[in-house]
């Protein structure tokens, strides 16, 4: 039963991924600058000094002279087989570059998500349980600050404070150099915003559930306060929280791009920015496509989680 649902959902996410691929392709080709010039290793301003014959030869070699639709079909056909082409700039396989960068980003996202979920939900629960008391005000204050702090700014502040002024964490560099501690500040930087949103949603959803009849029933059974809050309250309040967590994934990718760059972590984000600087369109397309697939998968996971948690949605 569940496998049918998973297969059907996977089928449904295919058009999304195709759409992402198409957009990635079009954006790459529509943005200003000529990828052929970039491929020749020249500065984009140096256009006037280029030998037109040489340029035409490079174009032909890279297939950039073909009609856009042909290029599109070729690229997408290859991409479906896991071949994102060879970077014009670095002459490396794009898939190789992407999959080399993927573990760093995955690790960062897993750490960030866990941090955000644990701290956000804890904050939200405390806030709801102690509604109207000082704990609630403090928790809500933290959440509002968290929601309104831009990720890149918070990353820089963290770096200045805890790597520069008080050097407890490494300034920048990959895990291979510093160990897991290299992830500490980037994780905190990205996690703040989703944690705050999760806290707010947990609070309001919990408050709604705690006012329902079934909570009174649970209390009338003589159950302890925390069993009522967690088993009966939280379990029923969790669905909207999962929705928010699912949406956060998209924001998180955005945050990760900036933060990876700031902390010089060799992940997908850094790769993407590098690709944009160098007008390496195949690299941009590949990276965007992988991020898109990850996003579609995260939506799938959220849908499946609903089904696992709520017996009413089970088919």
């Amino acid at each position: 039963m569940l496998t049918t649902v998973i297969l059907r959902r996977l089928l449904f996410s295919f058009p999304t991924i195709l759409g992402v691929a198409t957009l990635a392709f079009l954006l790459g080709h529509m943005s200003p600058g000529d990828p052929a010039i970039a491929a020749m290793g020249l500065d984009l301003d140096g256009e006037s000094m280029i030998d037109p014959d040489e340029l035409a030869r490079v174009r032909e070699e890279l297939g950039l002279n073909k009609p856009l639709i042909v290029q599109y079909l070729q690229w997408i056909g290859n991409a479906l087989q896991g071949d994102f082409g060879t970077s014009y700039v670095s002459s490396t396989e794009v898939s190789e570059m992407v999959f080399e960068a993927l573990p760093t980003t995955m690790l960062l996202l897993v750490l960030t998500m866990s941090t955000a979920i644990i701290s956000g939900m804890a904050l939200g629960i405390v806030s709801a349980v102690f509604r109207g008391r000082s704990m609630d005000y403090v928790a809500r204050m933290i959440a509002i600050i968290g929601v309104s702090t831009p990720t890149f700014w918070f990353a820089l502040v963290l770096m200045l404070t805890f790597a520069f002024a008080i050097p407890i964490f490494p300034m920048n560099g990959p895990v291979s150099e510093h160990g897991l501690i290299a992830m500490a500040l980037p994780t905190l930087a990205i996690a703040l915003h989703p944690a705050a949103l999760i806290a707010r949603m947990t609070r309001s959803s919990m408050l709604e559930v705690l006012s329902q009849d079934m909570i009174r029933t649970a209390a009338a059974k003589g159950l302890g306060k925390w069993r009522v809050f967690m088993v009966h309250g939280l379990r029923n309040a969790i669905n909207p929280v999962i929705t928010v967590i699912g949406f956060q994934f998209a924001n998180l990718m955005g945050g990760a791009v900036a933060v990876e760059f700031i902390f010089s972590l060799p992940g997908l984000g850094s790769l993407l920015i590098e690709g944009i600087y160098e007008k390496d369109i195949l690299l941009i397309q590949g990276a965007v496509l992988v991020i898109g697939v990850a996003f579609a998968l995260s939506n799938l996971i959220v849908d499946l989680l609903y089904m696992v948690i709520d017996p009413r949605i089970r088919v």
């Binding site: 009849d213 079934m214 649970a218 009338a220 302890g224 379990r235 029923n236 948690i309 709520d310």
Partner: peptide, 24 residues
């Protein structure tokens, strides 16, 4: 809490909303 549900029990007006929908 030792008395609730053991010595003195309650049933309520709304059977539709008084049970936990997530629990068997």
């Amino acid at each position: 809490r030792n008395i609730r549900g053991k010595e003195i029990s309650m049933i309520f007006q709304e059977p539709m909303t008084s049970l936990n929908p997530m629990m068997t």
